[in-house]
Design a binder for these strands. Sequence first.
DNA 1: CTCGTAATAT
DNA 2: CATATTACGA
Length: 392
Amino acid sequence: MELSLDTSLVFIPKTISDFLAQLSTMEDSSQRSSELDAYVKRLEDEMRKIEVFKRELPLCMLLLKDAIERLKERVMQCKKMEDRPVIEEFIPLKGNLDENGGGVLGKENSDKKNWMSSAQLWSTSLNIFEYSKHDPESGLRMRNEEDDRSVPENSIEPSNNRAMGRTFVPFKEQYESGFTGTCLKDDKEVSQVPSLSLMTPLMSEALDASTNTNIKSNNNCRGGSGSGLAGQLKLQNKPQQQSQQQQPFRKQRRCWSPELHRRFIESLQQLGGTQVATPKQIRELMQVDGLTNDEVKSHLQKYRLHVRKLPASSAAKGNGIWMPLDHSADHSKANNSQSGSPQGPLLPGEFAKGRSTTGGESDNSREAEEDEKSDGQSWKGGLLHNNQGGDV
DNA sequence: CTCGTAATAT
DNA sequence: CATATTACGA
C-alpha cells in the first residue's frame, strides 16, 4: 500500500538519460533549468535520506552523488547557453541497479526494494513510537513456536553459543515474512503491521577477517537490509586459526523496540519489580525468540539505572502512581499460560525487598520501581522535565 | 551458571 | 550522551 505516494506531482523518469532527453524537448529554457534544478534538489534530498545508511549503501551514495554532480554541470551549462540542446547519454543508472552486497546473484532480489519502503527510515518521529499506545504485539518473534530453524550454514561462531544452543539467531531476513507472530494462538491480532518486527541482530556478518575490515552492514533496526546470505557467497572462510585471542565481532546491537520493551516491562512487573526480577526469569517470561539472557540483563541494568535516576514521574497532581500495566484498552484474553495462577492478581507490587546485596542500604528512598510510563519507550521519552531535586 | 555491575564500544 | 555488549567478580 505504499504505492500511494504522490508521484503525480513530479514525474520520475526511468533513467536519467530519459530525464535529460525529456528535458531537451522543452522549448522554454527557463522551464528547462527549473526542471533541472528541481530534479537535482530531489536527488539531493534523497541523498540526505540515505546518508544515514551510507555505510550500508555506499554504492547508492556514490551513484547519487555522481548523478547530482553531473546534473549540476548540466545546470550550469543550461544557465550559460540557454539554447543548447541538452542531450547526452548519462551513465549507468540503467534498468536494474542492484548490487546488493556481494552480489545476490539473481536469486531473489525481487523484494529488495521493499525493505526500504517498509522501514520507516529517517527517524524523525515517523511512527515507531506511537503505536506503543495500544498496539498489538505487532511484530514480536515469540518463541512459543520454537521455530528455531537450524542455523544456516554460514554461522560464524560455533564456539560461542551463549545460552547453549537455543538462542542462536535465525538469520532469515524477517522483512519479508516479518515477524513470525503467527505463533500466537490466541489471536493476539497478528496484524500485518508492516515493518516493526523484532530485529534479529544477526551477529555474524560476512566480514573480511584478513583485512580486519568488518562489514557492519545491516545494523539498522528493522531493515534486514541486504543480508543476502542466500548462500551464494563463498564466505566459508571461517578463520579459526586466529580464534585464540580475537573476537573481532561484537554482537550486533540489539535494538529494543517499543514492543520488546513493553514486553520487558510487563514481564518485569509480573515478576514483581525491577529489583526482584532476574534476567533469566524476565527473558523466559517475555517469550521473545532470540532474546538472550545477556541482552535482558543489559536492558535491565539500563532500566534500573534510569529508574533510579528520575524517581518522581508525575507528581504534579496527586496523580499518584498508576499501575503501569493497565494501559492497553482491553486484553480480552484469558491469560498467559505461564504459571499456575491464571488471572491472578497481577501486579503484586513489591514489598519485600530484603535485598541485602552489596550495599545493605535499607533506608534509602522508597521504591520507585514501578514508575514505568506504562508504554514502551518510557523512561526517557515521556517526561523528564520534572526536576524537583533542584539541581540542574 | 546466573546475577549484578563496571568497563568498554558504538 | 545514551544505549548495548563484554568482562569480571560474587
